[in-house]
């Protein structure tokens, strides 16, 4: 009960503060690409799937990050329509003042709220330069070892 109360407090605290900025993300799941890379289909099955579904567009969902100086909230975008196939929504709440992160995780069909300290992703700066929208950008990549990709 204490935990829930604490959670509620954090929620209201974040809501009470003004959002300094919002970032909208488009999350595209191109399952043809994952078919191409998977290890359980043989060459013929892969090629058949690619030929059959090549006109299908990637499945897109939209998420957003609200942030201010004290913390951030990441989850389903506010204009996304409701769905009935997910019982629990995924979200991540970061508290910069206490160096803490709360995240929903589905493990074996159960939803857990995982509390952890904030971690920094190991960014690798590559020397590839590209100009985007009039500004020079450098390619940076990272690998998030905490995300288990199937």
């Amino acid at each position: 009960m204490k935990k829930i109360l604490a959670l509620l407090l954090i929620t209201t605290a974040l809501h009470a503060q003004k959002t300094a900025g919002t970032i909208r993300y488009e999350y595209a799941q191109d399952w043809l690409k994952s078919i191409e890379k998977n290890k359980f289909m043989n060459n013929e099955q892969k090629q058949r799937a690619l030929q059959t579904w090549k006109n299908d567009e990637a499945y897109k969902t939209y998420t957003q990050l609200n942030f201010n100086k004290e913390g951030s909230w990441y989850g389903v975008a506010s204009d996304e329509r409701g769905n009935s196939w997910e019982k629990t929504e995924y979200w991540v709440r970061r508290d910069f003042t206490q160096n803490k992160v709360l995240e929903t995780q589905m493990i074996s069909g159960k939803v857990y709220i995982v509390e952890d300290s904030l971690y920094t992703l190991p960014w690798k700066i590559k020397s590839e330069i590209k100009e985007v929208a009039g500004l020079s950008r450098m390619l940076a990549t990272t690998y998030d070892s905490s995300v288990i990709t199937p």
Binding site: G82, N83, S84, E86
Partner: peptide, 9 residues
């Protein structure tokens, strides 16, 4: 009329 949200349809 359809209603869909968090596990309910």
């Amino acid at each position: 009329m359809r209603f869909a949200d968090k596990g309910t349809f």
